[in-house]
Computed example of a mutant assay.
Amino acid sequence: MSVVERLGVTTFRDRPVTLLGEEVKAGRQAPPFTVLANDFTPVTLDSSAGTIRLISVVPSLETPVCDQQTRRFNEEAARLPGVTVLTVSVDLPFTQARWCGASGVAAVQTVSDHRDLSFGLAYGVAIKELRLLARAVFVVDADGEVGYAEYVPAVGRHPDYDAALHAVRACQGNGR
């Protein structure tokens, strides 16, 4: 089975890169995936079924923008009742656990896609040339429908935090 390759979606250090996997779009069912928690246990989309999911995708927690993005969503998580906030990267699970401990991040669940790029391929964020994930944010409602998808056009730039949080609130039903 061939994997879709997409060009022109994002850049890494000002160079175009190839994303593997199909684009995920709002209004469609979220694709299933299996990643690893910090204790190496499997985490799937169904692991948080019945909740709204804010999925923040970063190349590596140990880079400045990824660090800031994860910290920002960690701060917001306290104001998002009933929302599961995941940060997905290809960092190893024990690296993620160490980073969370050193950073005081506890409201976001960091999960690793290092094993087989299950998330990266399913959500179209696997960077072919680097075996990293492109920066993106997805919001999935409690029924598993994608309510928001953002592929950041340059890996070194921040996502649109306000738009992602607005999408979460829309899924919660207040739209504010």
Rank of each mutant, 00 (worst) to 15 (best):
M1T: 06
V3Q: 15
V4P: 13
E5F: 11
G8C: 08
V9E: 13
D14P: 05
T18V: 12
T18Q: 14
L20P: 09
E22V: 02
A26P: 02
A26T: 00
A26Q: 02
P32H: 05
T34L: 05
A37I: 00
P42W: 00
L45R: 13
S48P: 00
A49W: 09
A49Y: 07
I52A: 07
I55D: 09
V58Y: 01
S60V: 07
S60H: 15
E62Y: 15
E62N: 15
T63K: 05
D67V: 10
Q69A: 06
T70R: 13
R71H: 13
F73Y: 15
E75P: 02
E75C: 00
A77Y: 04
V83N: 12
V83D: 05
V83C: 08
V85Y: 13
S89I: 02
D91Y: 15
F94Y: 12
W99E: 09
A102H: 01
A107D: 14
T110E: 05
V111D: 11
S112N: 10
D113N: 11
R115V: 07
A122P: 03
Y123N: 06
G124R: 02
V125F: 02
V125A: 11
K128C: 08
D141T: 03
D143H: 04
E145H: 06
A149F: 10
V152P: 14
V155Y: 15
G156I: 01
G156H: 01
D160E: 11
Y161M: 14
A164H: 06
H166F: 12
A170V: 09
R176T: 15
